[in-house]
Write a protein that binds this DNA or RNA. Structure first.
Lengths: 133, 133
DNA sequence: CTTGACCTTGACATCAGTGTCAAACTCTAG
DNA sequence: CTAGAGTTTGACACTGATGTCAAGGTCAAG
């Protein structure tokens, strides 16, 4: 598929898709005419990248994260200690973000409940199930 | 306490603290000399703001979120439907970020385990406990 | 009183993420 | 063959979050 379709399917503008590629987060084949050619897998990839970027992860780190995911997928346990350390480092940052967002999510949800606006709550996950810490 | 101490305690630069105030995310008392004066509560507030901003929530929305939290805390169920709708809207965005980050966190954690780097895993939460969706 | 550390405001700079526009090319439909 | 839609690259612009610097006020220590 071409970039326009990929953009349509991911909700990410072509401009941004090219930007991500330029940042090394994406690799696109090229058709004979020079057009970028994408596969189904790219759809997922772009969604993932956009999601992380929107979650405040700088592209530089998105690359690290996704590279690790790729390695994991390939069952490629090649991981120099240095990289592992960087990932571990990043992990705490990610967890911090999750905690902060979770707190806000819970507060918003509770608030909407308290103000009789439950109707607005769609597919947001399970109720105040306090997770085992 | 003055801005320097607040900055030290939160790890947020004075510059940024002033910026947050300017964006309406913070309200600071003023001492007779014009210096901003903060209380313990501000420490928490600044942590919270910084956390959300780092998690990719634009300051404009951080304000909405925190205002709702404040309202909730004051047991103030005054909430025009319009505001509630906006919050509900924001909720799905927050949840999307959480999902995306959670996925990355799990992948990183799994990856570090798989590569025999468990040692690097500090206080990151419970193992692959698949949450009930 | 002077000095040094910290505060104030405001201007300017930077970086990342995005949008927009232009010029040129490709392809498909008519 | 031509028109229109989509693509490519590259330049420029903008916004939000931050850093930095300057000029001047405050204050505590010496």
């Amino acid at each position: 598929m071409k970039i326009g379709e990929l953009a349509a399917r991911t909700g990410v503008s072509p401009r941004l898709i090219r930007y991500y590629e330029q940042q090394g987060l994406l690799v696109a084949d090229r058709a004979a005419n020079g057009y970028r050619a994408y596969t189904e897998q790219h759809v997922e990839r772009v969604d993932r990248v956009a999601g992380l970027v929107q979650a405040g992860i700088p592209t530089r780190l998105v690359k690290v994260l996704l590279d690790a995911e790729d390695a994991a997928e390939r069952k490629d346990p090649t991981c120099p200690r240095e990289v592992a350390a960087q990932l571990a480092e990043e992990l705490v940052g990610v967890q911090a973000r999750i905690d902060c967002l979770t707190r806000s999510r819970d507060t918003i949800r509770d608030f909407l409940m308290a103000t009789q606006h439950e109707i607005l709550l769609r597919d947001t996950p399970a109720p105040p199930t306090p997770l085992p810490r």
